[in-house]
Write a protein that binds this DNA or RNA. Structure first.
Lengths: 209, 209
DNA sequence: TACGACCGAAGTGCATGCAATACTGTCCCG
DNA sequence: CGGGACAGTATTGCATGCACTTCGGTCGTA
């Protein structure tokens, strides 16, 4: 049982707030106000902020505290291919046999996605589960850590929040085809499809911007 | 002028101590003792430790503080290919024209390496300069951040500390050939050579272990 | 009006204080 | 002799306190 540290909960909470805009982009963070609002002292709050700055979700300005960087279309254009390449790498560094066993689970999540699409249409949580499962057999924990650290940055720009249903359906279909390649132990194709899924998502996002 | 924060200096200092073993592998860090030794309070020290744990150089054990992970041959086997792929990616995401102009500087550093080899033979600093210069034209700051965060982990296992002169000469030669490919704007070859340099360094390290 | 110096308030960065948890050694019991 | 309970200490995690820097506004001057 892992005792939960306040700074970890705060890290999650602040991440969520930055992602959904409750902490505005291009603004400074007031530690006193935020600490009071969260009902904690500044110490664990600062510890969380420092970690987030290390991961790039915030930037630390000496003497001025922590800032939420402004939205930057260029940043999105760089984050999507980065995550794409990192995930593809993680896939190539997984054992094909182990992966094949995952196909069923992947398909199940994809099915949940289509169901969710009928209702509220918030696929982000399911999408995250799908990708974590896909990469769960990667033998390189450091690579997985980098991916986990980078994906939140991308979520700021995530097209799945804005994306219409037609792109969602298309994306789910792409997910199914990746699982198919996995089942056939064809990692090369799977990695390629994975990258293309990310890139297509980005281009869809750019078309809206 | 960027005011320097205590926690940043401490981050560097602790990193150095972990890398050269002054803070032993497979040991716990005593915050009170270390803070006293460094002449600071526990607050900025803890802030630095948290950052290092986020980057993977330390691990945080709730209720037990921070640990220096033990040496693990498997970890080295995973870090070298990871850094190799990340750097290759950064290279592919650089503009060939910009890169070509770097070749001279790269060769100059390589020359310094051979000179250094005659004397004390500590190539690590020069090697770092060479690689930073090589990647300085990458347009993806997030990727560069990941590389900067990952390379210290690898330094714990860096064969250049143990490597004999024959491997060093060979490696310098490989650096020269990478610069050559750069000059010819052949990024594919350059990236390939770069990966092979890392992989060869690892296999050399494994032969000694 | 535009610009810079100055002053009070606000806020960060670091130090210190405190309570809860984890460690260490001893004792007791099987 | 081995193992578990227990008490005292050590150490972490969080709260609070303090000094210096930064910010915002006003005034004075060119």
């Amino acid at each position: 049982m892992t005792r939960n540290l306040l700074r970890r909960d705060l890290t999650e909470e602040i991440t969520a707030r930055v992602l959904d805009g409750r902490i505005a982009a291009d603004s400074r963070i007031n530690e006193v106000h935020l600490a009071r609002e969260l009902g904690v002292s500044r110490t664990p709050l600062r510890e969380a902020l420092i970690g987030l700055a290390d991961r790039g979700l915030l930037v630390s300005a000496p003497g001025r505290g922590f800032l939420v960087p402004p939205f930057d279309p260029d940043e999105a254009r760089r984050l999507y291919p980065l995550v794409a390449e990192l995930e593809a790498l993680a896939l190539r560094w997984s054992s094909p046999q182990d992966l094949a066993g995952l196909a069923g689970g992947l398909d199940r999540i994809a099915a949940e996605m289509t169901a969710e699409l009928e209702q509220r249409g918030d696929l982000s949580a399911l999408d995250h589960r799908w990708h974590s499962l896909l990469l769960s057999r990667c033998t390189n924990p450091h690579l997985l850590r980098l991916i986990e650290q980078t994906k939140p940055l991308l979520k700021r720009y995530d097209a799945s929040y804005f994306g219409g249903t037609e792109r969602s359906r298309e994306s789910i279909d792409e997910h199914l085809r990746i699982a198919e390649a996995i089942r056939a132990s064809d990692l090369t194709t799977a990695a390629e499809l994975l990258v293309r899924n990310w890139v297509k998502t980005l281009s869809y996002l750019e078309d809206m911007g």
